[in-house]
């Protein structure tokens, strides 16, 4: 457990340092994600030591959004003034992204002649 946390935090730490050193707009933890993926492929044994801790964290991912979500108390003004705009943006953009994604997936699969529904 301690080892797993050290690995996860270590990857994040390297990611944050790299993101700042190279002034990348990509968040440090995403670079850490890429780094851990490379480490896992290079050394599959790491899956055993990091797996259980990662599963616990990912199974409770929703909890981790709550503190930021409560920040809505500071944004009630923006939200209530523009609620129509937010409703339209979120509904239209989310459904459009889903349709574009599923359409592209099926189109390429059919193009490759490997459609096995």
């Amino acid at each position: 457990m301690v080892e797993a946390i050290a690995i996860l935090l270590g990857c994040q730490l390297v990611g944050e340092v790299v993101a700042r050193a190279l002034t990348l707009p990509v968040p440090g933890p995403v670079i850490g994600l890429g780094l851990l993926a490379v480490l896992l492929l290079a050394c599959p044994d790491l899956t055993k030591s990091t797996g259980p801790a990662a599963r616990v964290i990912l199974a409770n991912l929703s909890l981790l959004f709550v503190p930021a979500g409560v920040g809505v108390v500071g944004n009630l003004g923006v939200l209530s003034e523009n609620w129509v705009a937010f409703a339209v943006v979120l509904l239209a953009s989310t459904i459009a992204a889903m349709l574009a994604s599923v359409g592209a997936f099926l189109f390429v699969q059919r193009f490759l002649g490997r459609s096995d529904e």
């Binding site: 935090l9 990611g15 933890p29 964290i57 990912l58 709550v66 409560v70």
Partner: peptide
């Protein structure tokens, strides 16, 4: 105030970073 709340809740918020790194596991799996 939200800042006072966040003073306590930041320990949970901090875990978002390691959680993002942990997404590597299902990806590799």
């Amino acid at each position: 105030p939200y800042d006072a709340y966040f003073g306590g809740a930041q320990f949970i918020h901090f875990m978002l970073g390691p959680a993002t790194v942990a997404l590597a596991l299902p990806l590799v799996a």
